[in-house]
Design a protein around this nucleic acid. Structure first.
Length: 475
RNA sequence: GACCCUAUCGUCUAGCGGUUAGGACACCGCCCUUUCACGGCGGUAGCGCGGGUUCGAUUCCCGCUAGGGUCGCCA
């Protein structure tokens, strides 16, 4: 059972932090999203900060699904969360197993584990027995009572001080409405327990040591603390992190651009860039660096350093940062992200030889900041029909380039069996040099780009050639 | 209405009594580049307001203002 020492003077002792355990107890934090079919970018950041703290302290990161609201709770909705966290690389130590994201509590598949960890189930929909016992415990203690078919908790009338690792001590007085009746419903008249109750019970039963969550929960924390004490245990330590706001400073709602984590996946952001950007919202390495690998953040991150004020989401900066990551990432990683992005845009690279695909992608790396921009820039490499703009071809098909283009087309037609390509390849008879594939695709790009976008872009490839020349000379 | 949190360039931030208030994104010039991208140099731009405390406040305290949050048989 969780029983944190509560010696007041010890709460902010610096020695408590930077340690792998607090007072000898291993850190256990959790991310407890509700499956709404949507993972909010703010929720993702909350998960990230929990994960960072767990990894920093060598503690345990727990994923718990708060699916008490049966109406909007589906397996697909749970998978959105799991996939989102996996995409960001936030692995959890306890919680649902990927691939078996939810097992119906009525018909669990025999012998097939759906979760890992010793404090399960990790779906609230499967924990109703626990809640019932705990409510009975409160009733037995005279701290809860029936009221018009519901069950209400007898809230303390005393001032509650919320010790917060980020905000400091917060003294929460009752609002005027609460003064009328401080007690609150913990079980609805339909028998369903409410959020405040199940959240506390689960944190208690799962031995959570630190509750790291959005600041929107700060005011409610008084209720949670009262509940913990009613159960006879001291509450965990709290750390309320500031919220992420829209660029105009308003609250980010589901409909706002970029509110969903899925947006970033679909728009072609690299997850490592998103993670890095999110780290910098409310936390700073304090050394004027912007690009900080997440493993370094794990080393440096700590709760008391988290800023107290809300941050506005700056899409421009994320865009820039993504460009940084794209330019710096390995070619292999680039292919890994580029190929699915091209596929989403309708370009199937699997029809082409692997070496060709890589050579083609090599000419694109670092040119665009988002993978979603890749199709427009380099999609032409992966279409069947090859058409040249005569004007551009006349300009760019120099004697040097001709052989390179021939090489490109030849190599490609061998794999696709395209007659058209074969015929075109005859335009550029001659040399077949293995080392000029990258250069040849550049030349092809040069000619091809003249077809659709006008003369202004016809020179793009030749500059790329220079870049590639330079790169090769450097190596 | 009550309660809680917050306040440095447009945005993200460094700063924790004495600094020419630093960095990054964005923006504007110039350079590099026969295109794009990258890169280099420079520039515009900030301590919300009013009281204190202090020899001295961006920094500490109070008030105001502004923004955000909470007060549900939502989570």
């Amino acid at each position: 059972m969780l029983a944190l020492p509560m010696a007041e003077g010890d709460l902010y002792s610096p020695s408590d932090f930077n340690e792998s355990s607090i007072n000898g107890m291993k850190v256990r934090v959790r991310f407890a999203p509700s499956p709404t079919g949507f993972l909010h970018i703010g929720g993702a950041r909350t998960a990230l900060f929990n994960w960072l703290y767990a990894r920093h302290t060598a503690g345990t990161f727990i994923l718990r699904v708060e699916d008490t609201d049966v109406a909007r709770n589906t397996q697909e909705a749970v998978e959105v969360i799991l996939n989102g966290l996996r995409w960001l690389g936030l692995d959890w130590d306890e919680g649902p197993l990927v691939g078996s994201s939810r097992c119906d509590d009525q018909t669990p598949q025999r012998g097939v584990p759906t979760s890992k960890g010793a404090h399960g189930p990790y779906f609230q929909s499967q924990r109703s027995g626990i809640y019932q016992r705990r409510v009975q415990e409160l009733k037995d203690k005279g701290l809860a009572y029936d009221h018009e078919g519901a069950v209400k908790f007898k809230m303390t009338r005393e001032l509650v001080v919320i010790p917060d690792l980020i905000v400091g001590d917060v003294t929460r007085e009752l609002t005027d409405r609460e003064r009328l009746d401080p007690d609150f419903v913990i079980v609805r008249s339909d028998g369903q327990p409410v959020f405040h109750l199940v959240n506390v019970i689960d944190d208690l039963e799962m031995a959570i040591t630190h509750v790291v969550r959005g600041e929107d929960h700060l005011s409610n924390t008084a209720k949670h603390i009262a509940l913990f004490r009613a159960f006879g245990v001291e509450p965990p330590k709290y750390a309320h992190i500031p919220l992420i706001l829209n660029p105009d400073g308003t609250k980010m709602s589901k409909r706002d651009q970029g509110a969903s984590l899925t947006y970033y996946l679909e728009e072609g952001y690299a997850p490592e860039a998103v993670v890095n950007y999110l780290c910098l919202l409310g936390w700073s390495p304090k050394d004027n660096r912007e690009v900080v690998p997440v493993q370094e953040v794990v080393q440096m991150f700590d709760l008391p350093q988290v800023l107290r004020h809300n941050a506005r989401f700056d899409m421009d900066k994320l865009h820039w940062m993504n460009g940084e990551y794209v330019r710096l990432m390995s070619n292999e990683r680039f292919y890994e992200l580029a190929i699915p992005a091209l596929k989403r845009a309708g370009f199937d690279t699997s029809k082409f030889p692997s070496a060709y695909v890589k050579a083609a992608l090599d000419t694109c790396k670092g040119k665009k900041r988002l993978f979603s921009e890749l199709a427009d820039y380099g999609g032409f490499y992966f279409v069947e029909e090859v058409i040249y703009d005569t004007e551009a071809a006349a300009k760019d098909f120099t004697s040097e380039n001709r052989c390179l283009i021939g090489e490109l087309l030849e190599g490609n037609s061998e794999a696709t069996g395209s007659e058209g390509r074969r015929a075109r390849a005859s335009d550029a008879p001659g040399l077949h040099r293995q080392d000029c594939r990258a250069k040849s695709v550049s030349s092809a790009r040069s000619a091809r780009q003249g077809t659709g976008a006008g003369a202004a872009r016809t020179g793009a490839g030749s500059n790329q050639m220079k870049t590639i020349y330079r790169t090769q000379n450097l190596q």
